[in-house]
Amino acid sequence: MSFSVPAPLEARLDELVTHYPVKRSASLMFLHALQEHFGYVSREAVEWTAAKLGLQPINVYELVTFYPMFRQEPLGTTHVKVCRTLSCALAGSAALREQFCKKLGLDSHAHAPQTTPDGKFTVEFVECLAACGSAPVVLVNEDLHERVTAQAAEKILSEGSRLEGAAKGKTPVKGASGAAS
């Protein structure tokens, strides 16, 4: 798989470098842009960034592994983020995650985001989603689901599985909040 950055993006990034006194400072912006474009930061993307900024790949790689928001693997079409922080944890988010993982055949003990082999779902246990009042909460792609129950989780999964081939994050998933009340 060859790695190539489209010319307009490269031009934008080249221009971006000039904003900083030291080239290296642009690293994070580069990585964000590349993740936005490719969906994840591949190893080639790291090497490309390092070459652009006159760094060693390991320097960029340190950044990528430090920030959890950078993905090193492609994500599933439906990205389920289950909150693990206190309120949600008390409201049973661990069981919720367990349910997602079990349904999808994923390892519920794994620390990292888990993606199904068919690439449809990614389940991730994340820190606070800032909706503690309505715990437990789940963020499915861009949509926040509050007071998620087991039935609501089922619904998320069934709706997600219909999203075959659809562009990620474009189709809103609705209806979970009603079920929670």
């Binding site: 592994t65 959890p68 090193q72 003990h109 794994a110 620390h111 990292a112």
Partner: peptide
Amino acid sequence: EAQESFPV
């Protein structure tokens, strides 16, 4: 083995 695998 009982522990979570490493993020990366």
